[in-house]
Design a protein around this nucleic acid. Structure first.
Length: 427
RNA sequence: GGAGGGGUGGCGGAGCGGUUGAACGCGGCGGUCUUGAAAACCGUUGUUCCGGUUUUCCGGAACCGUGGGUUCGAAUCCCACCCCCUCCGCCA
């Protein structure tokens, strides 16, 4: 959520920034409503003050054995009624303003390249060497079933299209990846592991920015109004909802592994083969609550933590900076990490790392104290995958496949898998 | 799911419907004392919003689980909901 004060003081700057994201401009309406609500609040407070004053007077009289006249009581009833009406008005106006603000995305940082979509993204750097094959590497949707470790038909039988099942070495490889990534981030990168609910309340989804605007992409349980998380970012953001984080505790760094549920409605018909785009997948997510002054450095560091996973797995990868038109709703600045998959011949987005500045903190009412006894302020929040499992699985299977159809396990994972190769099936 | 108990400030814990933002204790902060520290004593101690002033500050409003209601006035009475604890039942 954007700060109403900021909109009030710099309306044109906000308008311009929203434009670069290709957004509508409800700023004029917000400002009008804001003027109205402030007037109503002032009036209401004056009436309340009057009511409080007289009521105290009545109390004082009563303690001296006198009763309030019916005249006074009638007058106060009237004032009270007016105050209550104005109060209702401020609530309605507040809801309206809030409704508009909740639909507004974060403002891009000044150094974010302006662009309308994917084409505007900039390759910041590349890492790793592309694997060289003396045979034609095959895509994972062929390789997986061939090895007997991915089963698409049975996944579909259970839950429909875009669901899948892994078995044997496939299931174990995923579990090994999860354990290894969590160990890497906790032991070497200083994150604290956290285990979280996979469903959350409506207001939690609002806090992270997924609701009200993106209900379409979420699975929802009607009976209890619970929502399946599309990423661990959602519950982690809200860990400190309605709290004031004490001085000298930032940065707080968390890493969590959760299932992620996405309806992928907008992508209907796209990437239907394989496990690149599915309705349920596991992801290791990194998240930080940081001091606003350091948030951009913290973002760079988090990107490096994610890149470290790619480096250690021996991937060819590239880091993109997203342009204004491609930024996520809550983000002010985002880097994507893509790894090369030799089988399907594609760059796969395995991580998206964003500085959400104070956008989520304001929505979730998370504050911190910069120093002991200081005023509470909004922290910045940083999130990024570290990494998303299915696409990492794709990259490993496709890039490490051998001429005989087997797949070699990257060195770092072997202590976790307990095997160093997924053998080709014979017969 | 059933029965009972409870939700008050950073924590503990009071609070006849009326100068109660809330006694008291602890903690925190400032000060006196001390070579220093402790003890003792004195003072101070939340958050949000509106208006004025504008890095200090002043005035007002709101907040005692949440939302409604009664009343001139509600932490205090009524209703609904949520959460926690104890016991019983069920279950991974």
């Amino acid at each position: 959520m954007l700060s109403i004060e900021h909109i009030r003081e710099h309306p044109d700057e906000v308008r311009r920034a929203l434009q670069t994201r290709g957004e509508e401009d409800p700023i004029t309406e917000v400002l009008e409503l804001d003027a109205q609500i402030r007037q109503a609040i002032t009036q209401r407070d004056h009436l309340n003050a009057e009511r409080n004053r007289v009521s105290k007077e009545v109390g004082r009289m009563r303690s001296q054995g006198q009763e309030a006249t019916e005249e006074i009581r009638a007058e106060m009833r009237k004032i009270g009624g007016q105050a209550d009406a104005l109060n209702q008005q401020t609530k309605d106006l507040g809801d309206k303003i809030n409704g508009l603000l909740l639909e507004l995305p974060n403002l891009p940082q000044p150094d974010v390249p302006v662009g309308t979509g994917e084409e505007g993204n900039i390759i910041v750097r590349q890492g790793g060497e592309p694997p060289i094959f003396d045979f034609e590497p095959i895509p994972h949707w062929d390789l997986g079933p061939k090895l007997g470790i991915i089963d698409f038909e049975r996944g579909t039988k259970l839950a429909g299209s875009r669901f899948y099942t892994t078995m044997g070495a496939g299931a174990k490889l995923e579990r090994a990846l999860i354990s290894w990534m969590l160990d890497l981030h906790t032991l070497e990168h200083g994150y604290t592991e956290v285990s979280l609910p996979a469903v959350v309340k409506r207001e939690i989804m609002e806090g992270s920015g997924n609701l009200p605007k993106f209900a379409d992409n979420l699975y929802h349980d009607e009976e209890d109004d619970l929502w399946l998380i599309p990423t661990a970012e959602v519950p982690i953001t809200n860990l400190y909802r309605d709290e004031i984080i004490p001085a000298n505790t930032l940065p707080l760094k968390y890493v969590a592994q959760t299932p992620c549920f996405r309806r992928e409605k907008a992508a209907a018909g796209r990437d239907t083969r394989g496990i690149k785009r599915v309705h349920q997948f596991n992801k290791v997510e990194m998240y930080k609550f940081v001091d606003p002054e350091t948030s951009n450095q913290e973002l760079e560091q988090l990107v490096d933590d994610a890149e470290d996973v790619c480096r250690k797995l021996g991937f060819t990868y590239r880091v993109l900076q997203l342009c204004t038109g491609d930024l996520g709703f809550a983000s002010a600045k985002t880097y994507d990490i893509e790894v090369w998959a030799a089988g399907c011949q594609e760059w796969l987005e395995v991580s998206s790392c964003s500085n959400c500045t104070d956008f989520q903190a304001r929505r979730s009412n998370i504050r911190y104290r910069a120093e002991e006894g200081g005023r509470p302020r909004l922290p910045h929040t940083i999130n990024g995958s570290g990494l998303a499992l299915p696409r990492v699985m794709i990259a490993i299977l496709e890039n490490y496949q051998q001429p005989d159809g087997s797949v070699v396990i990257p060195e770092v994972l072997r202590p976790y898998t307990g095997f160093d190769v997924i053998p080709a099936k014979t017969g």
